[in-house]
């Protein structure tokens, strides 16, 4: 029998991650290995801690003052919660796309150039190339190439979300976290984003939190099921959706609770 993750390189590994908001424990002993250049979906009912876990990976939880984390979260061999870690470098390496498209109220070009401008001084030509490359990778270039100086807010919801993906790609991350990226989009835009995720995994490790079971089934290689702050099951997506090992996973997937 082939073991799970046998032929995979591990990009991120969490070992017994516990997380509290004040006294409320939101994550309990989460241990999971996330494979490189694969799409891992995290599913589970609302409040199961899936977004919280995602936000641990790029330390977005730091913004919440009452949040406390114990355990080890490794990216390669560096501990994300280590003392000498630079959060800025970490977030550059681990990008994030949010639930609601959140383009900055500036031009399409400036949105993409925002990250690169912060991190390195590129000359005009290099920056132009990077903007084009990022927009192309996010499958948005053809739609916006003639209006790069227009406000990003003039784009449709689906385009805005792809712009946000392009913006993340522009800082050259290794991992991209998607926090319910399609929950505010129509089905066609959703399909496009899923399609894009499938293409992006060639170059990036992708972790996607989703409420949409079909989306997890379609877009991911591996699936983790979270419930009440615990990780119940992790496995190949095709197995999770055909014959999960845990009863609670099966009950959730088949809509018997949640």
């Amino acid at each position: 029998m082939i073991k799970l993750l046998e032929n995979e390189t591990i990009e991120i590994e969490s070992i017994d991650i516990n997380l509290w908001y004040d006294d409320v424990q939101a994550l309990k002993d989460i241990s999971i290995k996330l494979p490189k250049n694969k799409v891992t979906a995290i599913i589970g009912p609302s409040g199961c801690g899936k977004s919280t876990f995602l936000r641990c990976i790029n330390r977005m939880n730091d913004l919440i003052k009452t949040c406390r984390v114990t355990g080890e979260l490794l990216c390669g061999s560096t501990d994300i919660y280590g003392k000498d870690i630079d959060v800025i470098t970490l977030r550059k390496k681990i990008g994030m796309v949010f639930q609601k498209p959140n383009p900055f109220p500036m031009s399409i070009y400036d949105n993409i150039a925002y990250g690169p401008r912060i991190h390195n001084n590129l000359n005009k030509n290099k920056l132009n190339d990077l903007v084009e490359e990022s927009l192309r990778s996010a499958a948005l270039w053809d739609e916006v190439k003639d209006k790069l100086n227009k406000s990003a807010l003039s784009l449709s919801g689906g385009q805005q979300q792809r712009l946000c993906i392009a913006r993340t790609l522009a800082v050259k991350p290794e991992v991209i976290l998607f926090d319910e990226p399609c929950s505010a989009l129509d089905p066609i835009s959703t399909t496009r984003i899923e399609d894009l995720i499938g293409k992006l995994k060639k170059d990036y490790t992708i972790i996607i939190v989703t409420h949409n079971m079909q989306q997890a089934a379609r877009a991911s290689d591996y699936t983790a099921f979270f419930l009440l702050g615990e990780m119940i099951e992790f496995g190949k997506t095709k197995i999770i959706f055909e014959k999960p090992k845990q009863k609670s996973t099966e009950d959730y997937i088949t809509g018997r609770f949640g």
């Binding site: 079909q214 055909e242 996973t249 997937i253 088949t254």
Partner: peptide, 9 residues
């Protein structure tokens, strides 16, 4: 209904 897992089987 897009049945999954047990229901799909």
């Amino acid at each position: 209904q897009q049945p999954l897992a047990r229901d799909l089987r």
